[in-house]
Simulated scan of single mutants.
Amino acid sequence: MRLVLQDLRKSFGEKKVLADVNFQFEKGKIYGLLGRNGAGKTTLFNCLGGEIQADNGTMKLVNESTSRDLEMDDVGYVYSLPMLPEFLTGYEFVRFFIEVNGDVIEGQGNDMDGLFDMIHMSHEDRHKLIKHYSHGMKNKVQMLLFLLIKPTVILLDEPLTSFDVVVASEMKQLLRDMKKDHILIFSTHILQLATDLCDELIILNHGSLTSISPEILTQPDFEEQIIKLLRNENELGMGEENADAGNL
């Protein structure tokens, strides 16, 4: 399964944020999305998640025999600031979520404790009110929801930046375990995290997406090279004459 973006554009007034985005994401990979503040990462995620409508272009899920438009139900969005009902315990909320989505969740609600064990949440914590959860605990619950409903595409907006070392390690392993069944796109400002976790790095700069060549990542000064690419449009080859995504 592939997520294929073709000629995707989005502007806000006179400001062009996405300019002829062309890219293919494959299931079984974690993609690290890099870009400076204001580059359009959130706009891209919002278009993919159906929260805003692109001005132009297509977003399709393609496999060997079929091609169809990406739909909201195909996408799970892990927000940097989790939005969960704080008046419920984690256990109550997940049980409620399973009941409401029973048509797409089959047989996974019979072992609630097993689900929380999978995300390494203690018995005490799973029965606390969500308002008492740390940021990391809330993000764990978000991830558990997507393990249950299994959306084809999962967008992760800076999900690991506020975790302690142990929780971050647990979450990274969880993402590695999930990737075989999903297309994972991971937005982060932390270059070391992206290189450690992701199978492929892409840059969003001047409205277009471009893959970073694997050869760059093997060089001692790869961090400096990537920073240079983020600073310099010409290095990316992403002017209007070459808006298609390619390899650096």
Rank of each mutant, 00 (worst) to 15 (best):
L81Q: 15
P82D: 00
P82I: 01
M83Q: 08
M83D: 13
L84Q: 08
P85C: 12
F87Y: 15
F87G: 06
L88Q: 12
L88V: 02
G90S: 05
G90P: 02
Y91E: 14
Y91W: 11
E92I: 06
F93H: 15
V94F: 00
V94Q: 02
R95Y: 11
F96E: 11
E99M: 08
E99T: 11
V100P: 04
N101A: 12
D103Q: 14
I105E: 04
I105T: 05
I105Q: 02
G107M: 05
N110R: 15
N110T: 14
D111T: 13
G114L: 09
F116N: 01
I119D: 01
I119M: 06
H120R: 14
H120F: 03
M121R: 12
M121H: 10
H123D: 15
R126K: 07
R126Q: 05
H127N: 11
H127D: 13
K128F: 04
L129P: 07
K131L: 12
H132S: 15
Y133F: 03
H135V: 08
H135Y: 14
G136E: 01
G136Y: 00
G136C: 03
K138M: 11
K138I: 12
N139F: 01
N139P: 05
V141G: 03
L147K: 12
L148P: 04
I149P: 03
P151H: 10
I154A: 03
L155K: 08
L155F: 03
L156F: 07
L156E: 00
L156V: 00
E158S: 00
E158N: 08
E158D: 06
P159Q: 03
P159F: 02
L160H: 08
L160S: 04
S162V: 13
V165M: 10
V165S: 11
V166R: 11
V167Q: 00
V167F: 00
S169E: 09
K172W: 00
Q173S: 07
L175M: 13
R176C: 01
R176F: 01
D177A: 01
D177G: 07
M178Y: 03
K179E: 08
K179N: 11
D181S: 03
I185N: 02
I185T: 05
S187G: 07
T188F: 02
T188K: 05
H189G: 05
H189K: 12
L191D: 09
Q192W: 01
L193C: 09
A194V: 14
T195Y: 04
D196L: 09
L197Y: 01
L197V: 04
C198Q: 07
D199Q: 02
D199K: 05
E200R: 14
E200S: 12
E200M: 13
L201V: 08
I202P: 04
I202W: 07
I203T: 06
I203V: 10
N205T: 03
H206N: 14
G207E: 15
S213H: 13
P214E: 08
I216C: 04
I216E: 08
